[in-house]
Design a protein around this nucleic acid. Structure first.
Lengths: 118, 118
DNA sequence: TTTATATTTAACCAATCGGTTAATTACAGA
DNA sequence: TCTGTAATTAACCGATTGGTTAAATATAAA
């Protein structure tokens, strides 16, 4: 589904949502767990909405446990995003590698290592 | 810049813009070249706006040649997007690999090959 | 200087986004 | 059944998005 790809990229385009995914990559979390870091800057309903965006993109699944809603990371839709990038990887890889080589030559050992993908 | 990452993902969240990047991955193109596939469905100013989004994300550079504006793909900002994915790759990779194995077992030889990244 | 082509800008519009507050629903437990 | 906690829904709001048409700008060429 092409539409899914739109939703996934759009979901990733917000730092709050990326942070939520980062948190979920460390394991299951309830809505209030996910909300906690953001309650200084936004309300709980705002968090619920962000979560909804992630759910609609298929990136998060919500379970039920009493009054809690344990959320888990759902990795399949990222496949679409990865695939899209793969599709043009050959064309881009050369440029990226050249950039890498350039950066390495500039910063020498201080540049954090980046593996060649092949 | 975190903000750049927002712009890059947001830019990728639209199929018209992804198609433009795909076209540009094959080489330089003028605005009208880029617009051509879409003029059945939208106006030229709409294309100009999409191009602006790509420029603001740093993904496209526009040159000048007489009345033409030759556009080129600018790959560096994709680095941010790749980096973000890399950051959680370890946590996700296992799940992706397990999904891969599952899909392979389901579809056997018909599944298009997907290299293990390591 | 006029004309033709390439592209952008301005002004506008409806829909979506990211947030709010207030009210509501879902449960567990005393 | 009442209370407290977890989470969602509803109604609203201003800003942004993705499109439009009409006008303006940039440049080459007759």
């Amino acid at each position: 589904m092409q539409d899914q790809l739109n939703l996934v990229f759009a979901a990733l385009a917000d730092p709050t949502r990326r942070a939520m995914l980062a948190r979920l990559s460390e394991g299951e979390a309830n809505v209030s767990d996910l909300a906690q870091p953001f309650l200084k800057t936004m309300s709980l309903p705002a968090v619920t909405k962000h979560l909804k965006v992630l759910e609609n993109a298929g990136l998060v699944s919500k379970g039920r446990n009493a009054q809690w809603r344990p959320c888990t990371l759902n990795v399949e839709p990222l496949r679409d995003a990865v695939d899209w990038m793969e599709q043009y990887r050959i064309a881009w890889e050369d440029k990226l590698d050249r950039l890498d080589a350039y950066l390495k030559s500039k910063t020498q050992g201080t540049h954090h290592g980046r593996k060649k993908q092949n």
